[in-house]
């Protein structure tokens, strides 16, 4: 069996050079519209309605059960809530073609851009050499704070790194978990709360969090 290690050069060439076809602009909105159109028709009598109803109620029970379990097992309410907000912000950033307000891989362009817009200074570093290129920044609003969203890419996946100030040390949060299929890592340092969200696998996201923690607050 040809092992992956043996095919390293070929794999590397494909990963680096072969075209990754990004979804064309408008496809996301097209799907959004098509799904929205399809959704109400499920309730109308045109469909074998009661079968859907039955499925829906089964599903509702399953969701309720899983929500209850998550709440009990996972974390206190506020962690759950912030996680939800972070996941929602991440999904929204991917959905509405509003990934970044400032598109740049240059930390010296992104960092000053935040200066006039936030009352704190988020650390901005490009990790292209480590395989996590910076692709831009955005403003967001998480947990009742204006937050800096730093956007990184990993093998075509998007990582949103949210940063906001914590004034009260008691409210600093740390976690590493999976929610709705997204991986989340959070920690706080020097009065800043960091919250990463992405669909990259959890080990990679943790490795990325180590990079961020190790980085100096450069480009001041």
């Amino acid at each position: 069996m040809v092992d992956d290690a043996e095919s390293g050069a070929l794999s590397a060439a494909i990963k680096r050079k072969a075209t990754r076809h990004a979804a064309p602009p408008g496809l996301r909105q097209g799907i959004h519209a098509a799904v929205a159109r399809a959704a109400p028709s499920e309730k109308s009598s045109g469909w074998p309605g009661w079968r859907w109803l039955q499925m829906a109620s089964t599903l509702a029970c399953a969701i309720l059960a899983s929500v209850l379990m998550t709440r009990i097992v996972l974390a206190p309410e506020d962690l759950v809530r912030v996680n939800d907000e972070v996941v929602a912000a991440h999904v929204r950033s991917l959905m509405v073609a509003h990934l970044e307000d400032i598109a740049s891989s240059d930390q010296h362009t992104v960092k000053p851009w935040f200066a006039g817009k936030l009352d704190f200074s988020p650390p901005v570093n490009d990790f292209a050499d480590q395989g996590f290129p910076l692709i831009g920044g955005r403003l967001d609003y998480i947990d009742k704070h204006f937050a800096a969203a730093l956007v990184y890419r990993r093998h075509g996946h998007v990582i949103n790194a949210f940063v906001w100030p914590v004034r009260d040390a008691d409210k600093a949060k740390a976690l590493s978990e999976t929610r709705d299929g997204f991986n989340l890592v959070a920690w706080s340092v020097s009065g800043l709360q960091f919250w990463l969200v992405s669909d990259v696998n959890s080990e990679e996201l943790r490795a990325f969090s180590q990079l961020l923690r190790g980085a100096k607050n450069s480009a001041q």
């Binding site: 990004a22 929205a36 599903l59 929602a88 999904v91 991917l94 299929g181």
Partner: peptide
């Protein structure tokens, strides 16, 4: 937007680039 629609989009849309890439190559 119904709850089911929201959950679907949250689960499926993040994989749109991968989905398109696969279809485009096939």
């Amino acid at each position: 937007m119904t709850d089911r629609t929201k959950r679907f989009e949250a689960a499926a849309l993040p994989h749109l680039d991968a989905a398109y890439n696969l279809a485009r190559w096939l």
